[in-house]
Computed example of a mutant assay.
Amino acid sequence: MPTNGTLGFIYKFSDWAMKLAYLNILWILFTIFGLIIGGFFPATFALFSVIRLLLQNREEASVFKTFWSFYKKDFWKSNSIGWSIILIFIIFYLDIQFVQESTNPFLHIFYYPLLILAFIFSLTVLYIIPTYIHFDLKMVQLFKNSFIIMILNPLNTITMISGVMIIYFVSMYIPGIIPFFGGSLLALFIMIAALRSYKKVEDKKEHIESVRFHQEFKK
């Protein structure tokens, strides 16, 4: 098939559209397969993992086999990470509700700081799945590194937020796309921005190491 010009663009666009639709169906089916409660996070981690490979042109096996492999491999750890995130959100929600409904004026001081912290945590969550897939970190390191990468890459974080909002509003007006592109398109937006962030961080790290090497060499 042609890879250049208009025909090449049409082919690549069609190929990506088919793969994203197929991945979204797999994501829904495997979420149901895990009885939703146990399947949502493994299916989501597998979805992001396959999309990362596709973006890096490293699809060495069929989409289904690759998806299933990631689903099995990360089943327990993805649930551990996912439900930890849910628990933290619940704690934030309960704290905000408690402070908001409290009759103690002193506690009201903490209302806006809690909202800000909850918002920062929400932005950090956007990086958690991509960061785990890219670096395979332990839980504490995962949350810490996701936060640092989010802070260091405001433009890519804005890209993620914009992607989430665009897909949300399009889904509101065209709900028929949700079974075919709802989850996979969202994962694509987030993964693209995350990979750019990682590249930027790695470039900075290489630059710092290069500067240190030259400084040591001159001594």
Rank of each mutant, 00 (worst) to 15 (best):
V63E: 06
L87K: 00
P113M: 11
L126H: 14
W83K: 02
E101F: 14
I128C: 10
F119P: 07
V99Y: 08
V50L: 02
L115G: 01
I133Y: 01
D136L: 02
F121N: 01
H108P: 03
W76P: 05
V50Y: 01
L123P: 09
L115F: 11
F119K: 12
S78P: 08
S78M: 05
Y71S: 01
F89I: 10
F106D: 07
P105M: 01
G82C: 05
N79V: 00
A61E: 11
F135K: 13
T103K: 14
Y127S: 08
T131K: 09
D136Q: 13
Y111V: 13
K138H: 15
S62L: 04
T66F: 01
I91A: 08
E101Y: 13
Y93H: 10
T124P: 09
T131S: 15
F110L: 15
T66K: 05
L55N: 07
K77H: 12
W83L: 10
L54V: 12
L54S: 13
W83A: 03
A118W: 06
I88T: 08
I133R: 01
V50H: 04
T131G: 12
V63H: 05
L114K: 02
W68M: 12
L87I: 02
L123C: 11
S62A: 07
F98M: 05
G82T: 04
T124K: 09
D95G: 06
I128M: 13
F106S: 08
F135C: 03
L53I: 03
I120G: 05
F121W: 02
F106R: 05
L126Y: 15
I81W: 09
V63A: 05
K65C: 02
L107G: 08
L107F: 15
T66M: 04
E60R: 04
Y111I: 15
I120N: 08
H108K: 11
T66P: 00
L107H: 08
V63R: 01
L94R: 08
F98A: 07
K72F: 11
N79T: 02
Y127V: 06
H108A: 10
Y71P: 04
L94S: 09
I128L: 11
Q56W: 00
I85R: 05
S80N: 03
L123S: 03
F98P: 00
Y93V: 00
K73D: 10
W83N: 06
I51Y: 09
K138F: 13
V50C: 04
Y127C: 08
N104L: 13
S102G: 08
I85W: 07
T124M: 15
T103M: 11
Q56C: 04
L53E: 13
V125N: 11
F67N: 07
A118G: 13
L123M: 14
E59D: 14
Y93F: 13
F67Y: 14
T103I: 10
Y71D: 06
E101V: 07
I129T: 13
L115H: 09
K73G: 03
F110W: 12
T66R: 02
I91T: 04
L115M: 12
V50P: 02
E101D: 12
H108W: 10
S84R: 04
Y111P: 06
E60A: 05
Q56K: 14
I128D: 11
F110P: 06
